[in-house]
Design a protein around this nucleic acid. Structure first.
Lengths: 336, 336
DNA sequence: CACGTTATCGCACACGTGTGCAATATAATA
DNA sequence: TATTATATTGCACACGTGTGCGATAACGTG
């Protein structure tokens, strides 16, 4: 007994040509209903599973979607992947997952692996060290389907799903202002990521709206890790007339700042107010609980995936690239 | 210009037969070194990427590994997946990720999807509702390669990677005893999961060793979610002479218990001591920080994956199934 | 009864790659 | 020079599935 029965095995058992079996299984009109019934019955009896490799090769398109993220274990990304898997599996797709570990080099390697596996499309959130987007442009030029999410390539024309970083940052900063803080600093990310820039802009514009002056010394450009928050907070506390509130580019950075603030004997929110971004599960459990901007991770994954599937099914849609912007919500807790 | 150049395109450009190109690219000894050089050069120039679908079809084995977990977004599992991806990609494999959402039915569907995609092997952590293991037995009988991790099938002969749940639970309970607690309760998982049973046994044996009597009313069999911890804690507080300490089957359950303890005006660790399991990142940030048992998630993923790859490369190894047990460590914090 | 129509099925070839063996060319040996 | 060994390449077929078209038989119509 072979491990995987094929349509030929079914055909042999029924004294049919295997093309007839192929057609019967896909309900082709040119097959006798009775034959169909028979074929399907014995297929089930033999526990037949179609070989997607062969099918994809023949049809020139596969049932797999490549997902490329910086790091799988970050809660935000794993939640996004969860949303992607949900939609993909419901539509009969399977997902390939790879991580770049924030290295552009591995991003390229993984993208090539996806290409070799002839994925039907790709969902990407770019790494922090990705300085140029040649590999993605190449991919698109060759007819690849792609949707970026969260960390997107600004200079590429492709469909994207992002959260309204600008607005979220604006709300966060505005919230601090309304709470009475006046000297508001910002722990920013890296300048090559659009999310960092947009959050920075939202921060600046909120200050402007309320007539507060923008002080570039209050802005620390670091990264997205806890360590960056620690480093940045140290710097901001060292300057004369340090800020009395912080808007952090994300929750890990905010939590890094917590440490430094505590070490310096300052109290949150009395001495320093702080607002994060992303609503990491941890943020609800730090003390005091962190006020933050919630971004719908699962929803981002599911919408990105259904956008991609639409593109796969209707390739003309690629001409009208679309950028979906998901709204954030402010989660008010006790840190400001 | 076609989107994906094939070996035939290369062959045409060089006036060679495509089989020669095929051999040249894989350094077959029967090809003139000069021809090889030429072929490789133009392959690179044309940006050739081998078609893994065709290659897998022909070679009758693919370069993909299926990963099946209950829920991707749980920190433990995403950390495991991260470890798997690391090892897999280094070995030239790509991973397919699917989640069962704790439903046996979806576990079967996903397994079949993996089979149809002809994965080289499968890494599985079973769902809470998986009552029988027919689908896995079938898979193995047909020659499928499989390694279970964390939540394993006890009654199946296959390679497995687990943490020493028994010993971890023993250490946790012993720790509570040494801290002076005497009435130690247990918020357990579900009885069909081996991890729940082994942790329960460790708990019981620690009590025995120190001559404490086992009180079945102190054990609540619920589940692995925060909600189960809440429910269980409520029950345990309602009985006469309630426990003065809790060993929780995992951290989410422990955190659920935190809520109920706080609501009842009790203080951790003075009124009730508590120890969790898994060292979820949140556990360091709850107040008071949760003492817990660390299980090496990333390492579990990487060892499971390399075991699977060994089996794929050396199919005879399947006869000697192996169970690797990873050790846990107690992370002492402030909850007991 | 001759013809066209329709239902049903088989054949040849294709997708991109890999393998065994035959074919050819070249070099080495007697 | 004739013969054999060796190096290099091409051909046929295969992996499992899908598609266009032709073949056959059954049917209906005038």
């Amino acid at each position: 007994m072979k491990s995987h029965p094929t349509i030929k095995d079914i055909a042999a058992k029924l004294n049919l040509h295997y093309t007839t079996v192929s057609r019967a299984l896909r309900d082709h009109p040119d097959v006798n209903p009775e034959t169909k019934r028979l074929v399907k019955e014995t297929a089930k009896k033999m526990n037949y599973q179609p070989n997607y490799l062969a099918r994809s090769l023949k049809r020139q398109k596969s049932n797999s979607i490549g997902v490329l993220v910086p790091e799988i274990k970050h809660h935000f990304f794993s939640a996004v992947i969860s949303g992607i898997e949900e939609v993909a599996s419901r539509a009969g797709y399977v997902i390939l997952v790879a991580q770049s570990n924030e290295q552009m080099e591995r991003e390229i390697l993984n993208l090539n692996a996806f290409i070799s596996n002839h994925v039907a499309g790709v969902l990407v959130s770019i790494s922090q060290t990705t300085k140029n987007s040649k590999h993605f442009e190449e991919f698109i030029k060759k007819g690849g389907n792609i949707v970026f999410f969260d960390r997107v390539c600004e200079d590429i024309e492709a469909s994207k799903v992002i959260v309204d970083d600008y607005n979220g940052a604006f709300k966060a900063t505005e919230y601090l202002i309304k709470k009475g803080y006046r000297k508001i600093g910002h722990l920013a990310g890296t300048k090559n990521l659009s999310i960092s820039l947009n959050r920075y802009r939202g921060y600046v514009d909120a200050l402007k709206k309320y007539g507060l002056n923008i002080n570039e010394h209050y802005v620390y450009w670091g990264g997205l890790q806890e360590q960056d928050g620690r480093e940045g907070m140290k710097r901001l506390l060292q300057i004369d007339d340090p800020p009395d509130a912080i808007f952090a580019v994300n929750d890990p950075v905010a939590i890094g700042a917590y440490d430094v603030i505590n070490e310096n004997g300052l109290k949150i929110p009395d001495d320093i107010g702080i607002v994060g971004f992303s609503n990491n599960p941890i943020s609800a459990f730090v003390s005091p609980p962190l006020t933050t901007i919630h971004q719908p991770a699962f929803e981002m994954g599911s919408t990105a995936c259904s956008m991609l599937i639409d593109i796969i099914h209707e390739p003309e849609m690629k001409k009208n690239t679309e950028t979906k912007v998901l709204q954030t919500t402010l989660i008010e807790r006790k840190s400001a």
